[in-house]
Write a protein that binds this DNA or RNA. Sequence first.
DNA 1: CCGGCACTGTGACTTTTGTCACACGACCGA
DNA 2: TCGGTCGTGTGACAAAAGTCACAGTGCCGG
Lengths: 238, 238
Amino acid sequence: MNQLNATPDQTKNTACFSCENLARLTEIMDEHKYSAGSYLFWEGDAADKLYYLKKGRVKITKSSDEGRQIMLYMHQEGDMFGQVDPFHPSTHSFHAQALEDVTVGVIRHNDLEVLLWQYGDLAVEFMKWMGLMHRMTQSKFRDLILFGKPGALCSLLIRLGNSYGDVRENGIFISRKFTNAELGEMIGATRESVNRMLGDLKQNHAIEYVNGHIVIKNLTYLCDICRCENCPKDICRI
Amino acid sequence: MNQLNATPDQTKNTACFSCENLARLTEIMDEHKYSAGSYLFWEGDAADKLYYLKKGRVKITKSSDEGRQIMLYMHQEGDMFGQVDPFHPSTHSFHAQALEDVTVGVIRHNDLEVLLWQYGDLAVEFMKWMGLMHRMTQSKFRDLILFGKPGALCSLLIRLGNSYGDVRENGIFISRKFTNAELGEMIGATRESVNRMLGDLKQNHAIEYVNGHIVIKNLTYLCDICRCENCPKDICRI
DNA sequence: CCGGCACTGTGACTTTTGTCACACGACCGA
DNA sequence: TCGGTCGTGTGACAAAAGTCACAGTGCCGG
């Protein structure tokens, strides 16, 4: 866990792109705005675009027909997301909901393809970006399946630390607040389970609450529970 | 579930590539052979290559430190696998083990990048391939997390049907044999649980055994349990 | 044809996690 | 300041899945 206190730049999932190529991408974007709570796309919508998040946060969720819902990603400023696959027409398999008022740049697949055709280095960077996204998914997969809910929760806390953590003398201060229900949604557990597990962690002085914010006191303790592999911070995030 | 009885070609995950581009890729491959049971790479090995599977099958697994192991993919002839990410040096996060005697074409990242640089259409196809792999992972994720072990098992059976199924008058005959332990490993469940769940399915006439092979009698029944979304067969496979 | 081995099948029990019900406290707007 | 709403905290219970132990079965090689 040497990846804490990352600068904002380092935690963008577009870190793979050079300024030059980011500019090229920016050129083919259309700007759109969505208000907090609205959906950028729904499961089943045509997936022919990518989204570059300029402002705000977006969560990508999958919902089982009745009620239960699991959050797959929570994207923040500077992230790019969307679906790329070889089917025409292809459809989204997730929902994307704005958590705050959001400004996105929309990139159409067709425009992107032209750009990839033209600029080999962009294609290579793009491929690396996709690889990164894939590894994020795989790493989450591992955490959620292999070490039970407590493992998933600890891994989540570490990820939150990497994404929103502020290293202070008394621990890693997580600069956003989350309700137990939100945490549960992120790891496929119930509010109550999360509550009990957090209680355990508090008792073991692994974390504490400072006016509503989680502070990680003992990172090693968390790492042990989820068998943290010290993966790069670009992967181990929300 | 209209995707059954696929021709072998359609179930290759390299279906995205045109003959021309596959030939270009073939040119930069080095051929290697591995005997059944040996490892192509281990977790932690340098990940600077991709593998194109010419013959045999390879399983990609992740193991928790003690014993438990989960199979993420089972690749077959014509598949390409490996890890692409933007880190140098980057390391594999999984094991790859040959299930049979295996012949692979090894592609070095550096060589691939040159090719992507040169041929825009290859870059586009490659991107689509990566998108496909990513969606396979996400779809598995969904199945394993959302509908409990029975859901995961039914989804697995459907996938087996798509990958190895042979549609006959009495049902979908799965042309390979699997032990309960293997099935369990693929969905992160124990042998015993798998056994009991298969027992239930047999009782409900959803499947039956014909000299050691699973035959799917009632696909709809399975689909209901895992809320099958009729995803394209290229994604819904092993 | 016999013994060993790998796999299946099953029952009893434990652990993990979810479900339901409800008390409590914090905050917010009328 | 008072009720309403939202989130936390907790106990009792239920359901899901894993663990352990062991019996049965089928196959293979000597």
